[in-house]
Computed example of a mutant assay.
Amino acid sequence: MATSSPVLTRRRERPLSLVTGARRGIGASIAAELARRGFDLALIDIDDEGAHDTMAAVESHGVRARFYRHDLADSGGHRALVDRVVSDCGPIACLVNNAGVSAEMRGDLLELGEASYDRVVDINMRGTFFLTQAVARHMAAHASEHARSIVTVSSVSADLASTERGEYCMSKAGLGMLTKLFALRLAPLAIGVFEVRPGIIRTPMTEAVAARYDERIAGGIVPMQRWGMPQDVASAVAALASGQMTFATGSVLNIDGALSIPRL
Protein backbone atom coordinates (compact mmCIF):
# COMPACT_ATOMS: atom_id res chain seq x y z
CA MET A 1 0.00 0.00 0.00
CA ALA A 2 1.27 3.45 -0.84
CA THR A 3 -0.17 6.85 -0.07
CA SER A 4 1.09 10.19 -1.22
CA SER A 5 0.46 13.81 -1.86
CA PRO A 6 -1.13 14.31 -5.30
CA VAL A 7 1.92 16.00 -6.79
CA LEU A 8 4.34 13.24 -5.87
CA THR A 9 4.57 11.65 -9.30
CA ARG A 10 6.39 14.69 -10.70
CA ARG A 11 10.15 14.15 -10.79
CA ARG A 12 11.94 15.84 -7.97
CA GLU A 13 14.51 18.55 -7.78
CA ARG A 14 15.03 17.80 -4.10
CA PRO A 15 16.98 14.72 -2.98
CA LEU A 16 14.90 11.72 -1.94
CA SER A 17 15.46 9.85 1.31
CA LEU A 18 14.01 6.42 2.04
CA VAL A 19 13.49 5.90 5.79
CA THR A 20 12.48 2.55 7.30
CA GLY A 21 10.50 2.28 10.52
CA ALA A 22 9.32 5.79 9.78
CA ARG A 23 5.79 6.07 11.18
CA ARG A 24 6.66 6.78 14.84
CA GLY A 25 9.44 7.26 17.38
CA ILE A 26 12.96 7.78 16.11
CA GLY A 27 11.97 7.09 12.51
CA ALA A 28 9.27 9.76 12.47
CA SER A 29 11.68 12.30 13.96
CA ILE A 30 14.32 11.43 11.37
CA ALA A 31 11.80 11.84 8.55
CA ALA A 32 10.66 15.23 9.85
CA GLU A 33 14.24 16.46 10.30
CA LEU A 34 15.25 15.36 6.82
CA ALA A 35 12.18 17.14 5.45
CA ARG A 36 13.17 20.28 7.35
CA ARG A 37 16.54 20.10 5.62
CA GLY A 38 15.01 19.79 2.17
CA PHE A 39 14.63 16.07 1.47
CA ASP A 40 11.55 14.51 -0.04
CA LEU A 41 10.63 11.29 1.73
CA ALA A 42 9.66 7.71 1.01
CA LEU A 43 8.46 6.39 4.37
CA ILE A 44 8.54 2.63 4.97
CA ASP A 45 6.88 0.72 7.80
CA ILE A 46 5.21 -2.62 8.47
CA ASP A 47 2.03 -0.90 9.69
CA ASP A 48 0.27 2.29 8.68
CA GLU A 49 -1.12 3.15 12.13
CA GLY A 50 -0.03 6.72 12.86
CA ALA A 51 1.52 7.14 9.42
CA HIS A 52 -0.91 9.94 8.52
CA ASP A 53 0.44 12.10 11.35
CA THR A 54 4.02 11.49 10.27
CA MET A 55 3.15 12.30 6.66
CA ALA A 56 1.54 15.55 7.78
CA ALA A 57 4.60 16.49 9.84
CA VAL A 58 6.87 15.81 6.88
CA GLU A 59 4.74 17.69 4.35
CA SER A 60 4.44 20.68 6.68
CA HIS A 61 8.02 21.50 5.65
CA GLY A 62 6.94 21.98 2.05
CA VAL A 63 8.35 18.72 0.70
CA ARG A 64 6.66 15.70 -0.81
CA ALA A 65 6.20 12.33 0.86
CA ARG A 66 4.89 8.88 0.10
CA PHE A 67 4.20 6.01 2.51
CA TYR A 68 4.82 2.35 1.68
CA ARG A 69 3.68 -0.53 3.82
CA HIS A 70 6.40 -3.17 3.75
CA ASP A 71 7.78 -5.86 6.07
CA LEU A 72 11.55 -5.53 6.44
CA ALA A 73 11.77 -9.26 7.10
CA ASP A 74 10.43 -9.88 3.58
CA SER A 75 13.84 -9.65 1.97
CA GLY A 76 12.52 -11.17 -1.24
CA GLY A 77 10.36 -8.09 -1.73
CA HIS A 78 13.06 -5.47 -1.25
CA ARG A 79 14.06 -5.13 -4.89
CA ALA A 80 10.44 -4.66 -5.94
CA LEU A 81 10.01 -2.04 -3.20
CA VAL A 82 13.05 -0.09 -4.40
CA ASP A 83 11.79 -0.29 -7.98
CA ARG A 84 8.38 1.08 -6.88
CA VAL A 85 9.94 3.93 -4.93
CA VAL A 86 12.19 4.92 -7.82
CA SER A 87 9.31 4.67 -10.32
CA ASP A 88 7.02 6.76 -8.11
CA CYS A 89 9.48 9.24 -6.73
CA GLY A 90 12.76 9.30 -8.62
CA PRO A 91 16.29 8.23 -7.66
CA ILE A 92 17.15 7.55 -4.02
CA ALA A 93 19.85 9.82 -2.61
CA CYS A 94 19.73 8.63 0.99
CA LEU A 95 18.75 5.41 2.77
CA VAL A 96 18.13 5.49 6.50
CA ASN A 97 17.98 2.00 7.99
CA ASN A 98 16.02 2.72 11.13
CA ALA A 99 13.50 -0.14 11.41
CA GLY A 100 14.19 -2.80 14.00
CA VAL A 101 12.73 -4.80 16.84
CA SER A 102 13.89 -5.60 20.35
CA ALA A 103 13.79 -8.97 22.06
CA GLU A 104 10.22 -10.05 22.72
CA MET A 105 11.18 -10.89 26.28
CA ARG A 106 14.28 -10.28 28.33
CA GLY A 107 15.65 -13.41 29.95
CA ASP A 108 18.52 -15.75 30.67
CA LEU A 109 20.87 -16.15 27.70
CA LEU A 110 20.91 -19.89 28.42
CA GLU A 111 17.16 -20.00 27.76
CA LEU A 112 17.16 -17.98 24.51
CA GLY A 113 15.02 -19.80 21.96
CA GLU A 114 15.38 -20.07 18.21
CA ALA A 115 12.06 -18.36 17.46
CA SER A 116 13.03 -15.16 19.26
CA TYR A 117 16.53 -15.24 17.81
CA ASP A 118 15.26 -15.75 14.26
CA ARG A 119 12.67 -12.97 14.55
CA VAL A 120 15.16 -10.35 15.71
CA VAL A 121 17.95 -11.34 13.34
CA ASP A 122 15.61 -11.67 10.34
CA ILE A 123 14.39 -8.10 10.79
CA ASN A 124 17.33 -6.25 12.27
CA MET A 125 20.18 -7.90 10.40
CA ARG A 126 19.03 -9.97 7.42
CA GLY A 127 16.27 -7.59 6.34
CA THR A 128 18.46 -4.53 6.73
CA PHE A 129 21.32 -6.10 4.80
CA PHE A 130 19.24 -7.04 1.78
CA LEU A 131 17.39 -3.72 1.65
CA THR A 132 20.74 -1.93 1.81
CA GLN A 133 22.01 -4.17 -0.97
CA ALA A 134 18.98 -3.35 -3.15
CA VAL A 135 19.38 0.40 -2.62
CA ALA A 136 23.16 0.23 -3.11
CA ARG A 137 22.65 -1.53 -6.45
CA HIS A 138 20.30 1.25 -7.51
CA MET A 139 22.78 3.92 -6.41
CA ALA A 140 25.68 2.19 -8.16
CA ALA A 141 23.74 1.99 -11.42
CA HIS A 142 22.58 5.61 -11.53
CA ALA A 143 24.55 8.82 -11.28
CA SER A 144 23.09 11.57 -9.07
CA GLU A 145 23.32 15.33 -8.85
CA HIS A 146 22.82 15.02 -5.08
CA ALA A 147 25.15 13.78 -2.37
CA ARG A 148 24.36 10.16 -1.51
CA SER A 149 24.48 8.35 1.79
CA ILE A 150 23.40 5.26 3.71
CA VAL A 151 22.87 5.74 7.45
CA THR A 152 22.09 2.77 9.68
CA VAL A 153 20.60 3.35 13.11
CA SER A 154 21.83 0.54 15.33
CA SER A 155 22.40 0.81 19.10
CA VAL A 156 25.06 1.08 21.77
CA SER A 157 24.13 -2.58 22.24
CA ALA A 158 26.30 -3.25 19.20
CA ASP A 159 29.22 -2.90 21.62
CA LEU A 160 27.74 -3.01 25.13
CA ALA A 161 26.66 -6.55 25.98
CA SER A 162 23.38 -7.37 27.73
CA THR A 163 22.93 -11.07 28.46
CA GLU A 164 19.19 -10.52 28.96
CA ARG A 165 18.67 -9.75 25.25
CA GLY A 166 21.46 -11.50 23.44
CA GLU A 167 19.65 -11.76 20.11
CA TYR A 168 19.22 -7.97 20.01
CA CYS A 169 22.89 -7.29 20.82
CA MET A 170 24.08 -9.74 18.18
CA SER A 171 21.84 -8.25 15.53
CA LYS A 172 23.09 -4.75 16.26
CA ALA A 173 26.72 -5.85 16.29
CA GLY A 174 26.12 -7.25 12.82
CA LEU A 175 25.03 -3.82 11.62
CA GLY A 176 28.43 -2.49 12.59
CA MET A 177 30.06 -4.86 10.13
CA LEU A 178 27.38 -4.07 7.54
CA THR A 179 28.43 -0.43 7.75
CA LYS A 180 32.11 -1.23 7.27
CA LEU A 181 31.46 -3.54 4.32
CA PHE A 182 29.19 -1.15 2.43
CA ALA A 183 31.49 1.78 3.22
CA LEU A 184 34.36 -0.05 1.52
CA ARG A 185 32.27 -1.20 -1.42
CA LEU A 186 30.69 2.20 -2.11
CA ALA A 187 33.63 4.48 -1.31
CA PRO A 188 34.79 4.63 -4.96
CA LEU A 189 31.33 5.96 -5.82
CA ALA A 190 31.56 8.71 -3.16
CA ILE A 191 28.58 7.27 -1.29
CA GLY A 192 28.98 7.86 2.44
CA VAL A 193 27.99 4.96 4.72
CA PHE A 194 27.58 5.57 8.44
CA GLU A 195 26.33 3.98 11.63
CA VAL A 196 24.50 5.87 14.37
CA ARG A 197 24.32 4.17 17.78
CA PRO A 198 21.62 5.60 20.06
CA GLY A 199 21.77 5.00 23.78
CA ILE A 200 18.76 5.16 26.09
CA ILE A 201 16.16 6.97 24.00
CA ARG A 202 12.61 7.83 25.11
CA THR A 203 10.41 6.09 22.51
CA PRO A 204 7.38 3.79 22.43
CA MET A 205 9.82 0.86 22.28
CA THR A 206 11.38 1.78 25.64
CA GLU A 207 8.13 2.72 27.35
CA ALA A 208 7.72 -0.71 28.96
CA VAL A 209 11.08 -0.38 30.75
CA ALA A 210 10.97 3.38 31.36
CA ALA A 211 10.79 3.09 35.15
CA ARG A 212 13.85 0.87 35.20
CA TYR A 213 15.81 3.30 33.05
CA ASP A 214 14.65 6.27 35.11
CA GLU A 215 16.32 4.63 38.11
CA ARG A 216 19.49 3.79 36.20
CA ILE A 217 19.79 7.30 34.76
CA ALA A 218 19.31 8.76 38.24
CA GLY A 219 22.04 6.37 39.38
CA GLY A 220 24.52 7.79 36.87
CA ILE A 221 24.57 5.30 34.00
CA VAL A 222 24.27 8.20 31.53
CA PRO A 223 26.92 10.86 32.30
CA MET A 224 24.72 13.56 30.73
CA GLN A 225 22.05 12.60 33.31
CA ARG A 226 19.04 12.51 31.00
CA TRP A 227 17.13 10.39 28.55
CA GLY A 228 18.02 10.76 24.91
CA MET A 229 15.19 12.01 22.72
CA PRO A 230 14.31 11.00 19.15
CA GLN A 231 15.36 14.46 17.97
CA ASP A 232 18.90 13.82 19.25
CA VAL A 233 19.16 10.89 16.86
CA ALA A 234 17.37 12.69 14.03
CA SER A 235 19.79 15.62 14.12
CA ALA A 236 22.77 13.29 13.85
CA VAL A 237 21.27 11.28 10.99
CA ALA A 238 20.39 14.42 9.05
CA ALA A 239 23.91 15.78 9.45
CA LEU A 240 25.38 12.58 8.03
CA ALA A 241 22.82 12.48 5.22
CA SER A 242 23.72 16.00 4.10
CA GLY A 243 26.83 14.92 2.19
CA GLN A 244 29.14 17.17 4.18
CA MET A 245 30.87 14.24 5.91
CA THR A 246 31.39 11.83 3.02
CA PHE A 247 35.13 11.48 3.68
CA ALA A 248 34.25 10.11 7.13
CA THR A 249 32.55 7.12 5.50
CA GLY A 250 32.52 4.01 7.68
CA SER A 251 32.36 6.06 10.88
CA VAL A 252 30.25 5.33 13.95
CA LEU A 253 28.52 8.13 15.86
CA ASN A 254 27.35 7.42 19.41
CA ILE A 255 24.24 9.36 20.42
CA ASP A 256 24.17 8.33 24.05
CA GLY A 257 25.15 11.16 26.42
CA ALA A 258 28.58 9.50 26.93
CA LEU A 259 26.99 6.22 28.09
CA SER A 260 29.36 4.11 25.99
CA ILE A 261 32.62 5.71 27.16
CA PRO A 262 34.52 3.20 29.36
CA ARG A 263 34.94 4.46 32.92
CA LEU A 264 36.78 3.32 36.03
Rank of each mutant, 00 (worst) to 15 (best):
C94W: 09
D83H: 05
A134Q: 14
T132V: 11
L175Y: 06
V85F: 13
H78R: 07
T132Y: 12
V63E: 09
E59L: 05
D118Q: 13
V58C: 11
H70A: 02
A140K: 07
G90A: 01
S144P: 01
S116H: 08
G77I: 03
G100I: 01
A161K: 06
S154I: 03
L178S: 14
R165C: 09
H61V: 01
V63W: 15
A147S: 05
Y117A: 12
K172M: 04
R119M: 13
G127F: 02
S149W: 02
R165E: 10
A141W: 05
V151I: 14
C94K: 04
E164Y: 10
R165T: 11
S60A: 09
M125W: 13
S75T: 06
K172R: 04
S87W: 11
G107D: 09
A115N: 09
S157F: 06
N124Y: 04
N124G: 05
R126M: 10
R119W: 06
D88V: 02
N97T: 05
A93F: 08
A73T: 11
A147L: 13
R165G: 13
R69I: 03
L175R: 10
M105D: 09
D159F: 09
R106S: 11
E167A: 05
T152E: 06
H78W: 06
M105Q: 15
E114S: 11
G113E: 08
C169Y: 02
F130N: 12
F67E: 02
S154A: 14
K172H: 05
G127M: 08
R106Q: 06
V101Y: 07
H142E: 12
C89K: 15
D122Y: 05
R64E: 04
H146E: 05
E111N: 14
V151H: 06
L110M: 14
A173T: 08
R148H: 08
A99W: 00
V121T: 11
G107P: 11
S87M: 11
R137V: 15
N98G: 04
A147G: 12
G62P: 07
E114T: 12
A73E: 09
L160H: 12
R119N: 07
G107M: 08
H70T: 06
V120D: 02
V82D: 12
V153Q: 00
M139R: 04
I150W: 05
V85L: 03
T152I: 13
A161D: 09
L175F: 10
L181H: 12
Y168M: 10
G113T: 08
E164V: 06
R69L: 08
A73C: 06
L95I: 01
G127A: 01
N124H: 11
T163F: 15
S157Y: 08
D122N: 04
V85H: 09
V156K: 10
L112A: 10
A115L: 03
Y117M: 07
C169L: 08
P91K: 04
G176R: 06
L131K: 03
H142N: 10
A158P: 11
V101T: 05
V85Y: 09
R106H: 15
L181N: 13
T163A: 13
S162D: 14
I123D: 00
H70L: 07
E111H: 07
N124K: 01
H146N: 15
D71S: 04
N124I: 02
V82Q: 10
G127R: 02
E59N: 08
E145D: 14
T163D: 12
T163W: 13
A103P: 02
Y68M: 04
T152G: 03
